[in-house]
Structure formats: C-alpha cells, structure tokens
C-alpha cells in the first residue's frame, strides 16, 4: 500500500502526469488568451496537447553530426528532473514528501531542465544551436541572481535559524500569518519573481535563446519528432512549476482541508499568475537583445529583489 501510494505520488499526483497536464493546460490558456487580446479566436485550449501528440507521431531524425546518446538523452533528463521538482512544491496544505523540500534543491533541479536543453542543443552540432546555447546560458546567468535574492528574502522572512530553506516551513508560516504577498516588504520580491518567470520558461520578451525568426529556434533547431515533443513538454512543465513556485512562495496559506479542492484552487491560481506574468508581458512586448536582457535582470529585477531583502533584513 505504501509503495503504491509512493508510485501514485511520483507518477500521477503531484508528479509527472499532473505537472505535464497542468503545464499543457496553462500553455493552452496562454495561447487562447493572447489570441483574444489580439482579437483573434485562437486555438482551442487543448492545442498544446495536440502539438505534443502530433510530435510523438513524427519521425525523430538524429543528425549525422550529433552524438546520439546525449542528443536523445537530454530531453529525458530534463523531463525527469522537472517531474521531480513538482513533488517538492507544496500544493497549499499538501506536500508529497513532507520534510524533504528545500529551496536550493528546487533551484538546482530547475537548472537541470535548462542544462538539458543546452547540452542537447550543443550535441546536435549545428552552429545555430551554438548561438542558441550561448544565449540560453546568458539568460540563465541573468535571472539566477534576482532569483537567488528572492529566495533568500523569503527564507529570511520566514526565518528559522536552522531550517533556513525549508518549503514546508514557508507553507506553515503562511498558513499561520497570511500570504507573504500581503506583507508589504515582500512586494518588490514578488514583482521580481513575476518578471523572472517569463525568462525561466523562455517567453517573449525573454525568448532570445529560441528566437525562431533569427536563429531558427536555437538549441532546438535539429530536434524533431518525439525528442522535440519532450522539450515542448518540458517548457510547459516549467510553466506549471514556476507559477506553482510563485503560488506557494507568495500566495500560500489557503487550506481547505481536502486535497482535491486544494489542487483545483492551486491550478486556478497558477492560471491567474500565468495570465499576469506570461501572457500580458508576451502580448505587449517585442524580443530583447541578449545584452539588454542581462542588464535588465542584473539592474532592475535584482534591484527590486535586493530592496526586498534589505527591508526584510531590517526586520520589516
């Protein structure tokens, strides 16, 4: 029974299947709403699902210059790491494995998702992918600084002296004291995290790495079929994870008591966060240059996060 429960947690809820479905759903909402914003009808909400299954049905071509093992292994590695991250993000009152969640672990597992894309692209041997991975890596370096600052200010605000980075402690703190978003010293950090999400999932204006009009989708250029489908799925899962992370860091504290209700509210909140930080920004902006992106994150966004950290450090 224990083992069965364990398997269900890992594979279905809140692990791989749940993350993938919610991710594809959020991606669908994003496309639908953006179409409406542009006065179009837009694709159905299940369109990303169709995309994924169509790609599964196509041939996967391994180019002659690619290293087959790494080329095909990278998307799976990314999928595994992202499926695992979601197990450690509390869904309001519910965590799959209590006591094992940690902000740093989440940070690093998210990094693996990005590294999988970079290493996979690099192994394809295409010069377009070379430029793409360069930009992807610089993007990662850009958002990592503000991301770390946000995480530290949350950790300080919640502030156990020994269990500094525990996710459960953050959830418990919010259940007791209300959501962190409503404490004013945390608002700059929340805005910073909202600005980090589009870069993490590679959405405009921060999609320099996969700019399809200039470098032919960068690292993904040589990917086709199932492997490409896995990468598209990974992007969607990242969407779910990042918005979920925002929800549990800043909007936690809602506890209905039943897991199903919690999950439904969680998905709804994630959808709202997606609309605010991904769709709106996507609809109104054009692509940045890579050096401007770096500058933006290390000045504006880091400044916001740092302001929050200093405020929290002073005990506000």
């Amino acid at each position: 029974m224990q083992i069965l429960l364990f398997l269900v947690k890992v594979l279905i809820f809140p692990g791989a299947l749940f993350t993938a479905c919610v991710g594809l759903f959020l991606a669908g909402i994003d496309r639908k709403v953006i179409a409406h914003m542009q006065k179009r009808i837009g694709p159905p909400i299940r369109q990303p699902m169709y995309d994924f299954f169509k790609l599964m049905g196509k041939e996967t071509i391994v180019p002659a210059r690619a290293n087959k093992l790494v080329f095909l292994g990278a998307p799976i590695a990314g999928f595994i790491s992202l499926a695992i991250v979601m197990l450690f993000i509390p869904i309001f009152g519910f965590t799959a494995f209590s006591g094992t969640a940690d902000l740093i672990v989440i940070l690093y597992f998210l990094t693996i998702g990005g590294v999988a894309l970079i290493v996979g692209g690099s192994s394809s041997g295409s010069p377009y992918a070379g430029i793409g991975i360069s930009r992807e890596m610089v993007t990662m370096m850009s958002y990592e600084l503000p991301f770390v600052l946000v995480l530290l200010s949350v950790a300080r605000k919640v502030g156990g002296s020994t269990l500094a980075f525990s996710m459960n402690q953050i959830a418990d703190y919010q259940a007791a004291n209300g959501s962190l978003l409503f404490s004013w010293s945390m608002i700059p950090a929340a805005i910073a995290l909202l600005l980090i999400i589009p870069a993490e999932v590679g959405m405009q204006p921060f999609d320099v790495a996969e700019a399809e009009t200039e470098i032919c989708e960068g690292p993904l250029i040589e990917y086709s079929g199932a492997a490409l489908g896995m990468f598209k799925l990974n992007t969607a899962m990242k969407m779910c994870i990042m918005t979920g992370l925002f929800t549990s860091l800043f909007l936690g504290g809602i506890r209905t008591g039943t897991v199903v209700c919690d999950a439904i509210i969680f998905v709804a909140v994630c959808a709202v966060v997606t609309l605010v930080c991904i769709t709106t920004i996507h609809a109104v902006t054009a692509r940045l240059k890579i050096e401007h992106l770096f500058k933006f994150y290390w000045t504006v966004v880091s400044g916001l996060a740092l302001a929050s950290l200093i405020l929290v450090w002073m005990g506000l």
Binding site: R31, A35, R40, I41, G42, P43, P44, Q47, Y50, D51, K54, K58, I61, Y128, E212, T213, I215, C216, E217, L220, I221, E222, Y223, S224, L228
Partner: peptide, 17 residues
Amino acid sequence: DAERFGFKLAGSPRHAD
C-alpha cells in the same frame, strides 16, 4: 486567424509538417 486550426510558423524544417 489560421492559428485556430493549430497552424504555426516553425523556425526550422525539422519541426515542420
């Protein structure tokens, strides 16, 4: 609005149908 049928411009021939 071709996107309502799922049409999308891809950047690379490897992605295309």
